[in-house]
Design a protein around this nucleic acid. Structure first.
Length: 252
DNA sequence: AACTCCTCCAACCGCAGCGGT
DNA sequence: TACCGCTGCGGTTGGAGGAGT
């Protein structure tokens, strides 16, 4: 992976010597002030490269090697909850870096996609067969499932919960991925009131001062919509029905 | 043995957020 | 409030090495 140097800055794989210089520098001056690190350490690297090398490789307590079953399970569940927020997920896995988690997920997803396409193909064959039989006897009814974004009223219990905590974020509901972030501090924002699991997840994550949920997370047999002993009320269908209306009109 | 393909993961890059001025 | 610099994050790239032919 050795690459050419561009100008004065070196790129590509780090050498043992560079690692030592960086390690010594961090030990001497501590973490942070990354823009000063290359100069202090006498490295011809950019500050990003230094930071990345330290956080992903040199930092003590970094766990190398494959992910065990528990970790995989946690990643899966946290990803469901938080989306591609690798740093948040990694923060819950001692010794793992965001880069590790991200790489693992991409590898994992690639494998899963393969399996899924195989499954889908198999299912398609069955469905085609069934359809052929069905249409031979009667006209086929197609059920169109429309996406149904939800908005919560100002008085929604869980929005009130967010409202009470200025640190929480309310983000637009995007399916399973990153969501643009917005604060909940003003009524104007609350007027929008777009609900997103991620926001509630953030709120949820702040509860981890209590060892209780963390232990329950590890020990519990968790179902979807439940995380440890805490029921994820934002996935409560009844609550959603009573609280929501579509921002694009009722999707009936 | 030689070649190709595939997987893993270290490293790079662009961008958003935040604090200071 | 606009600008600037710094930090941290997530997406993407590409080299190394293993597996398959």
């Amino acid at each position: 992976m050795e690459k050419n140097t561009i100008g004065a800055l070196r790129k590509g794989t780090w050498t043992q010597e560079e690692d030592n210089l960086l390690r010594d520098c961090i030990h001497q001056y501590g973490e942070g002030k990354w823009h000063l690190v290359p100069q202090r350490a006498g490295l011809k690297r950019c500050r990003k490269s230094c930071r990345m090398r330290w956080l992903n490789y040199l930092k003590p307590n970094i766990k190398r090697g494959g992910f065990n079953e528990d970790e995989v399970d946690m990643i899966r569940r946290f990803h469901k909850l938080l989306g591609n927020r690798w740093s948040l997920i990694a923060g819950r896995l001692p010794g793992r870096t965001a880069n590790d988690v991200k790489n693992f997920w991409h590898t994992n997803m690639r494998n899963r996609k393969k399996e899924e396409t195989q499954e889908t193909k198999a299912k398609e064959v069955v469905v085609m067969k069934n359809n052929a039989e069905e249409t031979a006897h009667q006209g086929k009814q197609h059920v169109v499932i429309k996406p149904q974004p939800h908005t919560f009223s100002k008085n929604s219990p869980w929005l009130r919960r967010n409202h009470n905590n200025n640190n929480n974020k309310l983000v637009s509901a995007s399916e399973g991925g990153d969501a643009a972030e917005a604060t909940t501090s003003g009524p104007g924002v609350m007027k929008e009131g777009i609900a997103d699991p991620c926001a509630a997840a953030d709120d949820f994550m702040h509860r981890d001062q209590s060892e209780e949920w963390w232990e329950s997370l590890l020990n519990n047999d968790r179902d979807e919509g439940q995380f440890g002993n805490f029921t994820m009320d934002f996935w409560d269908d009844d609550l959603l029905k009573s609280e929501t209306k579509s921002i694009w009109g009722n999707a009936e």
